[in-house]
Design a protein around this nucleic acid. Structure first.
Lengths: 188, 188
DNA sequence: CCTACCGATCGGTAGG
DNA sequence: CCTACCGATCGGTAGG
């Protein structure tokens, strides 16, 4: 592991616990046994940590949804696969996911706008699956935007309660979520 | 409207846009045409804004769930009512909801622990409805904790996209959510 | 990788 | 409700 990776990883951990703004460069420095000034030999500035993380996850999620749309499947199968990919990414690094989900607001304006537009287009790809399901006659006639936002909220929230040492692992979480989203709580 | 209420309301608006930590007392002061020092004649300190808001919403949600459990109903009816009450509270004041959902982490440790325990007990009351539904034979045999967290994630996320001027109003949102949670996306 | 340091800004208080 | 101000802390740079 390079020194840069060590700094990045440590920073993400601190930022998940205390928040991005509340984590100072001095906090990060002392956690890796350096002076704050020395951090700048390895990273450009504080915002680079946030930018790298947010766009790194955005890219991973985009690859995941592209995977799904490159294969010919019905909507239910596509949704299942999209959920699985999303959960896989989000549970991979919980510290990074926290920044991605909660702290992107603190990106500089230019970066924030880019981020939002990539997030919107990801949402759209998800939404298209919901619409496809309706066109196939397999899904109910729901408001696609409403349904998509509700689904993504459930998926992202996993990063808040998932524990790698717990009994439910990403694959099982994805299956249960798919089940829940497709057929709900009520019997028949 | 008292000066205090004006300050509180303005502060919540700023904090929703820029985040709690990023909103300075000077920002709040200039938004209400005062000097920062003068704010302290109306509010105790910055944290009071956060504490008041977080516990105010916690109380409103607790009243809502108590309402549900005081009436004899089956689980599906209870869930529907609980969702309706939750959405009503959360859409009432979006600025306050943002603080409640995202910024409680910045409460002082003592307050934060209180807050978490009230949030946990609210979750438990929701969970009990899911369990009741299973005992009645009406709900599937899902993991109640998992289901409850997924449901609450969907409900809270409404505060991110709901617009009072938009076409979907709280009552309709609650109905669609209930429908979605009970019977899912797929036709059967 | 460190010492030394900068200008800016913060929450909050004293005293009127 | 204001002026004046405090000590603390911030992200970051110069120079070695």
């Amino acid at each position: 592991m390079t020194r840069r990776q060590e700094i990045m990883g440590t920073a993400l951990g601190l930022m998940r616990n205390k928040g991005y703004l509340n984590t100072s460069m001095r906090d990060i420095a002392s956690a890796v046994n350096m002076e704050a000034a020395s951090l700048y030999n390895h990273i450009k500035n504080k915002e680079e940590i946030l930018t790298n993380t947010c766009f790194g996850l955005a890219e991973a999620l985009e690859l995941g949804i592209k995977d799904v749309n490159d294969i010919y499947f019905n909507a239910a199968e596509k949704l299942k696969m999209a959920i699985h990919n999303h959960i896989t990414v989000i549970t991979q690094d919980l510290n990074a996911s926290h920044l991605f989900i909660h702290e992107w607001r603190h990106l500089s304006e230019a970066m924030r706008n880019q981020f939002i537009s990539r997030r919107d287009s990801y949402e759209k790809e998800f939404r298209d699956i919901v619409i496809l399901g309706f066109e196939e006659g397999e899904f109910k006639d729901v408001d696609p935007k409403f349904a998509t936002l509700t689904i993504l909220a459930s998926l992202n929230w996993v990063s808040e309660w998932y524990r790698p040492q717990g009994e439910m692992q990403p694959k099982e979480i994805a299956e249960k979520l798919t089940q829940f989203i497709l057929s709900g709580l009520q019997k028949n």
